[in-house]
Computed example of a mutant assay.
Amino acid sequence: MNNFSYERLHNNLQYLKLNTVEELLENYLEIAARDNKTTMEVLDYLFEQEKKHREAVAIERKMKSAAFPVKKTLDEFDFEFQSSIDKKVIEDLATLRFVHNSENVVFLGPPGVGKSHLAIALGIEAVKAGISVYFTNTGNLIERLKTANREGILEKKLRDLMKYKVLIIDEIGYLPFDEEGAHCLFQLISRRYEKSSTILKSNKSYGEWGEIFKDRIIVVAVLDRILHHSTTINIKGESYRLKERKRQGLKTGNMYQ
């Protein structure tokens, strides 16, 4: 390859933003010549590496956009400790069929039993599949929606949230909503109904959701839309945090025996 062709090739790769190909090209051409690789094999390898790099960058960008408070995976979840959960149901959810069908997932149970872990883990599986995800705390979400409502831009805020194929709403039930907050959340749930998937996590049973919304008509309408196409995971096990405290206490006790 003469100098002119070499420079033009690199310039074209830069122009086309094939940065990974450009970075690997020189060394891989030497390897290809040594191993008698065909032109097709060289092109296949270089473009495959470019694709993988772009996919990794896209996933990293989506992970940042998702705003997960922590990273939790399904492999890290202790199904043996939390025996009330049917692992096969979680594995089915991990196929993301529920996302493609615009279905919802609801995790119910007391604090510390793994609801957030599973919700985040499913969100991460979705991100790895190239699906847009956003994680939000209920209190923060309600306040943002109420502010948008007062500023006359609630419709825009709802459209922004509709951009996410999966919306994870954490901690429903820790604090009750006022009338405006309940109305705003109803608008969001209604907008996503049968169009996108929502994963919700609550420490309250469905029968107690009236205490959260303080309006029986709205809570019935919200639950109707959430539960029409949904999977509910009701976790009845012991708190992981309590388990860890007990384990640490046992270790401490052993020190003095």
Rank of each mutant, 00 (worst) to 15 (best):
L223I: 11
E194P: 08
K243S: 07
I226L: 12
R247A: 14
L93H: 00
K87D: 04
T136V: 15
Y6R: 14
S196V: 10
K72L: 11
T95Y: 06
K251I: 12
G253M: 12
F68D: 00
I233Y: 01
Y240D: 00
N104G: 05
V70W: 11
R54M: 04
L93Q: 01
T231I: 12
T147G: 07
L18W: 01
G249P: 09
F77I: 04
A66M: 02
K165Q: 09
E238Y: 12
V219L: 13
T73E: 10
H117R: 00
Q49P: 12
K204A: 10
V219K: 06
N27Q: 05
S197W: 03
S197V: 08
R8N: 11
L154H: 00
E151P: 03
H229C: 07
L185C: 06
Y174S: 06
F81D: 13
Y206N: 15
P69T: 10
S132A: 14
L145R: 05
N104C: 08
L24N: 07
R159A: 07
N19G: 15
D170I: 02
I59L: 11
N137T: 15
F77S: 00
L188W: 01
D78C: 08
N11E: 15
A121N: 02
A119E: 00
S5R: 14
T232N: 11
N36H: 08
H53E: 06
F186P: 00
N104Y: 08
I199F: 00
E60I: 06
V57G: 03
E60F: 07
G249I: 09
E30L: 10
N3P: 12
R54T: 04
G114F: 02
R247H: 14
I59F: 12
K51V: 11
N203L: 06
Y256T: 11
L188Y: 01
I153Y: 02
K115F: 02
R225A: 07
P176N: 09
I85R: 00
F4K: 12
S65T: 14
E30V: 07
G249S: 12
V166K: 00
R54V: 05
N149H: 11
V220T: 13
F213A: 03
I218P: 03
Y206K: 15
A148C: 09
L13H: 02
E23M: 11
T198P: 01
E103I: 04
A32E: 02
P176L: 09
T73D: 04
S230T: 07
R150K: 15
T38G: 15
I85F: 04
I226E: 03
L43W: 06
G123V: 04
D75A: 14
N11Q: 15
R225V: 14
K72T: 05
V219Y: 07
Y28M: 04
K128A: 05
K163R: 11
K62T: 09
A94V: 06
A33D: 14
L122Y: 01
